[in-house]
Design a protein around this nucleic acid. Structure first.
Length: 423
DNA sequence: TCTGGGGTCCTAGGACCC
DNA sequence: TCTGGGGTCCTAGGACCC
């Protein structure tokens, strides 16, 4: 049977979340900034019209911002994560098969369902009513087509927010695809776009008509799959259960340059503690640990230094104490004085489920059990009493190096202090 | 003054083995 | 002068996504 897959996506997600709790932002140009208030990562339509680009360094737009009174906000991930959970829960009622693809979008399998356009409108209405957020719905017989349909739903007003490719005749669909630039296709980024253009493939339709074998040879199997998906052959399945991560990263740019070892050590302790928490949430242990530090590459006149080191752990672990200890040992070897460091990070790799981990010959099982008990106690307290209620002393108290986040909205939905007052 | 963070997959090439 | 062939594993780098 022909599949029907929907992609539902919140419009301008972060900005829309902010607007739910601060309606003054409606109809105004608004942007949400990345960590450290560095780049623009979400824009209202009004801000897009003014020419603010996605990912652009915010300090370069200051003049434009002043001239047009663009509101800028620091990102508030606690708020966005909570709003995301609400949207996903609402959508779960519309299909037994859901894949949460990112913080603001999910796929639903609607195969066999009737009147899909009306069904999509129902989703839009309910999410607007229950969560206060605007969404668009794209429907196609593969994920790639659903993505493209979603693009049409967003950009072409005649669809009124819901576009079902399945409801179009073949030639209607082809005419539509001729209007879409090839770079809009899922999986085709900037580099591939320019290579495709050089081959004379300019639109989504051109790509659909291309010979898969030829493209496989010119590019890779990924591109060949994309072409098949455009032609309605499913190559990318719906993944209802998220597979465990193969790698866990934690890194941040500093709010100001950091020179001293002790601040770097505090940062590394914090990042590794976070990474270890994530590791335990998914029930894995790590066999590989990586630490890196670097100066600011955007200041080429300053002395530059960037270095990282990967360590294979003697036996895979999820113990914060052990991971932090190893990370600090690595940091000592990487650190050089007299540099202005801008960023540091850690990552954990070679992740395997804790239950199938090989315990090395010399690890005493008793200390192993004690460590597990300690970690789960810390995790429980922190989840109940708030993040970092218990933390390692080497994380420090001063946080001179912490990122800037000057214009963050309150945690409206996840903290009593952030609760909205109505007078 | 000021340029994010967290992921995945694929490929080419080198090392090594028999 | 002549310098095999086939296979696996690992890593770095490049591409993409949100």
């Amino acid at each position: 049977m022909k599949r029907s897959i929907a992609l539902i996506d919140v419009n301008n997600f972060y900005v829309s979340c902010e607007r739910v709790f601060n309606p003054k932002l409606n109809n105004q140009p608004v942007v949400v900034l990345s960590n450290n208030d560095g780049c623009v990562i979400s824009r209202s339509n009004e801000a897009k019209v003014l020419g603010i680009k996605m990912g652009a360094p915010w300090f370069k737009s200051q003049e434009l911002a002043r001239k047009h009174h663009i509101e800028s906000l620091s990102s508030n991930y606690a708020l966005y994560a909570d709003m995301s959970n609400r949207v996903m829960a609402i959508l779960r009622d519309f299909s037994p098969n859901q894949e949460v693809y990112s913080i603001d979008e999910c796929f639903l399998d609607l195969t066999g369902f009737k009147d899909l356009t009306a069904y999509g409108q129902e989703m839009r209405n309910r999410i607007l009513k229950w969560a206060g957020l605007p969404v668009c719905v794209g429907i196609g017989s593969t994920k790639t087509l659903a993505k493209l349909a979603n693009h049409c739903a967003k950009k072409m007003p005649e669809f009124n927010g819901v576009c079902d490719f399945g409801a179009l005749a073949d030639d209607e669909l082809n005419t539509l695809l001729m209007k879409i630039e090839v770079g809009e296709v899922w999986g085709v980024g900037r580099r591939l776009t320019s290579k495709l253009l050089a081959l004379g493939i300019k639109t989504a339709y051109d790509l659909k008509q291309a010979e898969p074998e030829y493209l496989k040879q010119q590019f890779s199997v990924v591109m060949a799959k994309t072409v098949s998906e455009l032609n309605g052959t499913v190559c990318i399945e719906l993944e209802e259960i998220a597979p465990p991560r193969k790698q866990i990263l934690s890194s941040r740019s500093f709010g100001q340059p950091v020179r001293d070892y002790s601040s770097l050590a505090e940062a590394i302790t914090l990042y590794m503690s976070r990474a270890a928490e994530k590791l335990r949430v998914q029930g894995s242990v790590a066999g590989l640990l990586h630490v890196y530090i670097r100066t600011n590459p955007h200041k080429p006149d300053d002395p530059q230094y960037a270095n990282g080191m990967t360590i294979s752990l003697p036996s895979p672990t999820d113990d914060t104490l052990q991971l932090v200890k190893t990370a600090l040992w690595v940091l000592k070897r990487l650190y050089k004085r007299h540099y202005a460091y801008a960023k540091a990070g850690v990552s954990l790799g070679d992740l395997i489920p804790r239950t199938s981990a090989q315990i090395d010959l010399f690890t005493q099982t008793q200390s192993n059990r004690r460590s597990q008990k300690l970690m789960s106690t810390i995790d429980q307290i922190n989840s109940k009493m708030g993040r970092a209620s218990i933390k390692l002393a080497s994380e420090g108290m001063r946080y001179d190096w912490k990122m800037r986040s000057g214009r963050k909205s309150p945690n409206y939905t996840t903290s009593w202090d952030g609760l909205l007052y109505v007078y």
